[in-house]
Write a protein that binds this DNA or RNA. Structure first.
Lengths: 146, 146
DNA sequence: CTATGTGCAAATCTTTTGCAGGCTA
DNA sequence: TAGCCTGCAAAAGATTTGCACATAG
């Protein structure tokens, strides 16, 4: 998987510090690096644990894969990231934490945001009694036009 | 996971035979049993490999878990079943093969069909150039009302 | 008879966990 | 200093695969 992360800068690091303390997470070296990589330039990104791990190693950071998993989980629990389920075998994490639709390219197994303002429901199935809607996941699976 | 399968009958078995040959799959003993369990009474069902394996054992069939996995995969490849992704750690297979929305109870990790006639889009995000929509997955995640 | 399917165990792959040592507040 | 973090290796699940044997057409 090709992931395109922003280069590390002092600014992205200080931004990451705020981000972490805001969520009550200690700003350790590894977390700062991972946070800066993930939300670096303010662009929305969709990362997998493996992809982020590769990116961290590539920029010279010494992290273990287990820590990447633990950190992603911590970020998700702190609502800094959203976990998206599109593929039964891999978890994707999204820097956008609101409920919005996704495109998933089956060919490259790549996930991206779909413009949420272009999605509107005319009608949604009635929610069964005693339940409420936690979230509505919409994944638009794309393939190359035939 | 509680799964409620139809009892095996001669009728469901002969029905299963047709399904298999129609899809070009050899009607072996194991496949017949699994097909009858899955599509048994014509009701839509959502099964996991483990759940189907348990059901097969329970009705006295001698099958291995690996065969259940292989068979589910074969059924899916033959378009007899649809694979649904709602939970990153488990695959669900649906006897309804058309594109339709699902309810997912987070509490019990249970999947069920949502009435598809109650789902209507007013607008769907524009498909990027050179692509076409393979499928639109809609999962309505439910939690107990607070 | 030949190609497929099956069973078992072992391999894979992703993710989590236990524990000893390190670092932040 | 106290408690949270990290790294490593090992565990845990779900799923796939290799190979010898069985079986449908």
């Amino acid at each position: 998987m090709i992931v395109d992360f922003a280069p590390q800068t002092e600014q992205s690091q200080s931004c990451a510090t705020q981000w972490l303390s805001q969520a009550g997470l200690r700003p350790t070296r590894q977390r700062l690096t991972l946070a800066a990589l993930v939300m670096g330039d303010g662009q929305n990104r969709h990362v997998t644990a493996e992809g982020l791990y590769a990116a961290a190693l590539e920029c010279g950071e010494k992290v273990s894969l287990a820590t990447v998993y633990n950190t992603l989980r911590a970020f998700r629990d702190a609502d800094l990231l959203n976990e998206i389920t599109v593929d039964a075998s891999r978890s994707y994490f999204d820097t956008r934490t609101d409920d919005h639709p996704h495109f998933f390219w089956e060919e490259t197994q790549t996930l991206s945001d779909a413009p949420s303002e272009e999605l509107e429901f005319r009608r949604l199935p009635a929610t069964p009694d005693g339940c409420e809607v936690a979230r509505v996941d919409v994944v638009i699976r794309l393939r190359r036009a035939s």
